[in-house]
């Protein structure tokens, strides 16, 4: 009978653990729901087409976010224009030419792992000292975009390298057997085969860049006018949310509306990139047939 008592105890503990697991799951879901519901409640009444295309009025208390949207896209554009070529090249180098544990590759990998651990505010310090002051770019979209490029590189490279390594070795061997030069094999066989994984890396990078605030405060700056060039200061969406919430009394509902736009933008880009990768791959596989 002692064993049945132990089994009973076991079952009681098991039930308690199950209850706890359910409770944690509900807590997680509840927190997400709470945050999203609050953003929607505060922001949705302010959200309209006019909000997206109008200029901000009275430090952002009313009006829209057109210059902020444009600055954000420009900063993101600069970031990707720099980080994607460097990232893809490094990922190709690490995945295709550095399979061993010797040489230059491990050094690059170690350096990138260290870079991944650097806090975003330190990227802000560095961007301010290097791009804004030493290179003389000032508080500008260019400084901000370049700082973000440094920040997203480790994430971009790690996911792109994983995608490239997932391409079966037979593909490369077959290309080599056909006598294709290596650049042809990489461009027409390895890269297309790795495309969905590469797209995932790109999405992760874009998400990270859009979400960033601390690295931009002292590189791309606060100015909420429409930027005339890449050397103008431009306020990103994240910085706009921060400024409205902290420095502008009565800016909370506008901040909530901007937060909704930012979150929606992240989700939209994720969805579109996924769809595009699938479409690209689809047309490619039909062409191969």
């Amino acid at each position: 009978m002692a064993s049945s008592g132990a089994a009973c105890f076991d079952r009681a503990i098991d039930t308690a653990l199950a209850l706890l697991a359910w409770l944690v799951a509900l807590l997680v879901v509840g927190t997400i729901g709470w945050i999203v519901a609050d953003l929607l409640r505060q922001g949705l009444p302010r959200l309209s087409w006019a909000f997206l295309v109008e200029l901000p009025i009275d430090a952002g208390r009313s009006g829209g976010i057109r210059p902020i949207l444009i600055s954000t896209l420009l900063i993101l554009g600069v970031c990707l224009a720099v980080s994607v070529p460097i990232g893809l090249a490094t990922a190709l180098f690490l995945a295709e030419f550095q399979r061993g544990h010797r040489g230059f590759g491990p050094l690059v990998r170690y350096s990138l792992d260290t870079l991944a651990g650097v806090p975003s505010i330190v990227f802000g310090l560095f961007g301010n000292a290097f791009f804004s002051i030493t290179l003389g770019l000032g508080f500008s979209i260019l400084s901000g975009g370049l700082t973000l490029a440094c920040m997203v590189l480790p994430l971009l490279i790690r996911s792109m390298e994983t995608a490239l390594r997932a391409v079966p070795a037979e593909h490369r061997l077959a290309a080599a057997a056909l006598g294709l030069p290596q650049r042809v094999s990489l461009l027409h066989i390895v890269l297309p085969a790795a495309a969905p994984g590469l797209a995932v890396g790109l999405i992760l990078g874009i998400g990270r860049a859009l979400a960033e605030t601390a690295a931009l405060l002292f590189t791309s700056g606060y100015v909420d006018r429409l930027p005339g060039s890449l050397l103008d200061s431009g306020r990103a969406l994240s910085v706009h949310i921060f400024d409205l919430a902290m420095n502008v009394p009565g800016g909370a509902s506008q901040a909530a509306a901007t937060a909704l736009v930012l979150v929606a933008l992240v989700l939209l880009i994720n969805g579109f990139t996924g769809w595009a990768a699938q479409r690209w791959l689809g047309s490619l596989s039909s062409a191969a047939l």
């Binding site: 945050i35 921060f242 919430a245 901040a255 937060a259 979150v263 992240v266």
Partner: peptide, 16 residues
């Protein structure tokens, strides 16, 4: 939840 920017979490913390 992981995709929600930290500034949005901070904003929610501030107002709620």
């Amino acid at each position: 939840l992981g995709g929600i920017p930290s500034v949005v979490v901070g904003f929610w913390g501030l107002v709620v």
